[in-house]
């Protein structure tokens, strides 16, 4: 955390300029390397070749981008429902927690890409197996963070609320839920990145469209430049989804963002995770 003191004046500009300059530098070196060395375009196309190929195939890329975005949005939504419902189930009673929690962890030991073909056998080549893969990859961080979040409320506050005659439902609605939301959003940020990975896996196992599918096709055609453009688009989708989560978080939890800003101005360490940290800087 270095945004106190002498950095504060130009930190905002630096926050945007520094990564941009770094990216330009990498691109320049990349460009230079492809020019001076005799690496073939099929192995490593130059940034300008990638841009040209991307522009040339823009319709193809765009069409497949929409397909993948649809999968990711539906899959991500499914992951949220699955993660939150599981978390609430697990927090609802000690018995359920004992029975389910270990299996929740075990579920992450199963390599999801290996399970993906089974989904295809079950449901065919349509949208469904992709959504299942995405949900399966992305629900875990949501579930785990929500479980932690539902535990995060100050027990003293719940006692105070009982003296104010709060019902069980009121204690949940006014105390437990708002205390849990920052945690839920931490989970959502990790899940956003994972859902892009899930979409690509889902398409690799069986698809006839989408950016993941396109990568396989382009790989066969050794059109490396367009492949790079496709990867760039996939990354862009991930970043956008991440940004969307942060936007919703700021709208929904203005208090959280304000408090964080203040505590970092004071130089107080924050107990937040890395995803949140990156999020705060975007």
């Amino acid at each position: 955390m270095g945004n106190g003191g002498r950095l504060s004046l130009d930190s905002r500009a630096a926050r945007i300029a520094a990564p941009a300059i770094f990216a330009l530098l990498v691109l320049a070196i990349w460009q230079l390397y492809t020019v001076v060395s005799d690496v073939p375009e099929s192995s490593l196309p130059s940034p300008t070749q990638i841009a040209a190929a991307g522009w040339e195939n823009r319709q193809l890329l765009l069409d497949n981008t929409w397909v993948t975005i649809e999968e990711i949005l539906i899959g991500f939504a499914a992951a949220i429902v699955l993660g939150v419902v599981l978390a609430m189930l697990i927090r609802s009673s000690r018995t359920v927690e004992r029975a389910l929690y270990p299996w929740l962890v075990v579920s992450q030991m199963v390599p999801v890409p290996a399970v993906a073909p089974i989904f295809v056998i079950w449901t065919g080549f349509d949208l469904r197996p992709k959504i299942m893969v995405i949900a399966l990859v992305a629900f875990f961080p949501i579930a785990v963070n929500t479980i932690d979040g539902l535990r995060a409320v100050d027990p003293q506050l719940l006692r105070l609320m009982r003296t104010l005659r709060a019902s069980f439902w009121q204690r949940f609605r006014y105390a437990q839920l708002p205390a849990a939301l920052p945690f839920v959003f931490s989970g959502l940020k990790v899940a956003a990145a994972l859902s892009v990975i899930g979409a690509v896996f889902g398409e690799w196992v069986g698809a006839s469209e989408g950016l993941g599918y396109l990568i396989l096709v382009l790989n066969n055609a050794t059109d490396t430049a367009t492949m790079f453009a496709t990867i760039f688009l996939l990354a862009l989708i991930g970043i956008s989804l991440f940004g969307l989560v942060i936007l919703i978080e700021r709208l929904l939890l203005p208090w959280y963002h304000d408090a964080r800003k203040e505590s970092s101005d004071d130089g107080i360490a924050e107990p937040a995770d890395d995803a949140v940290e990156i999020g705060g800087r975007l």
Binding site: Q156, L157, M161, L164, R165, A166, Q170, Y174, L253, Y256
Partner: peptide, 25 residues
């Protein structure tokens, strides 16, 4: 009952915090 810690809810404004007891009732 007012415990030692103020236990104000960080997600409620000061006004909404003070109105909590009324709202709960």
């Amino acid at each position: 009952y007012m415990p030692q810690a103020d236990l104000l809810m960080p997600w409620r404004t000061v006004l909404d915090n003070t109105a909590l007891g009324l709202q709960l009732n």
